[in-house]
């Protein structure tokens, strides 16, 4: 098994774990963590693509790396916004449930 394939499988596992957490965990904080896990899997796929594209003789394909760093910044901003909203929800209602009929 070559290195890109190994990393590709790791990435797929991360995406799967993240998706599972996003679906079944009722806690918003866990959902945010699961979102980050899934995001890291997807970023790893992008990194594998950058590495694989390096077959042309470069050290690595720079375009996916540029996409990757942008996506990481966006995902970081998303997590920050989600955590801030969650904290505010806890301050206002004393609960962190996002069920539609929560008190």
């Amino acid at each position: 098994m070559d290195v890109p394939t190994l990393f590709g499988i790791c990435a797929a596992v991360l995406v799967g774990l993240g998706l599972y957490g996003l679906i079944v965990n009722p806690q918003p904080l866990r959902k945010i963590l699961a979102f980050n896990l899934m995001g890291n899997g997807i970023f790893m796929i992008c990194a594998v693509i950058a590495r694989r594209g390096a077959a042309a003789g470069f050290g690595g394909d720079p375009v996916p790396q540029a996409l990757l760093i942008t996506a990481i910044v966006v995902a970081f901003a998303a997590s920050a916004l989600a955590v801030a909203t969650l904290l505010r929800l806890h301050d206002e209602t004393g609960s962190t449930s996002i069920a539609p009929d929560a008190p």
Partner: peptide, 10 residues
């Protein structure tokens, strides 16, 4: 509304 916003965001 904060709860609705968080659901939307997630």
């Amino acid at each position: 509304t904060i709860r609705a916003a968080l659901r939307y965001l997630l």
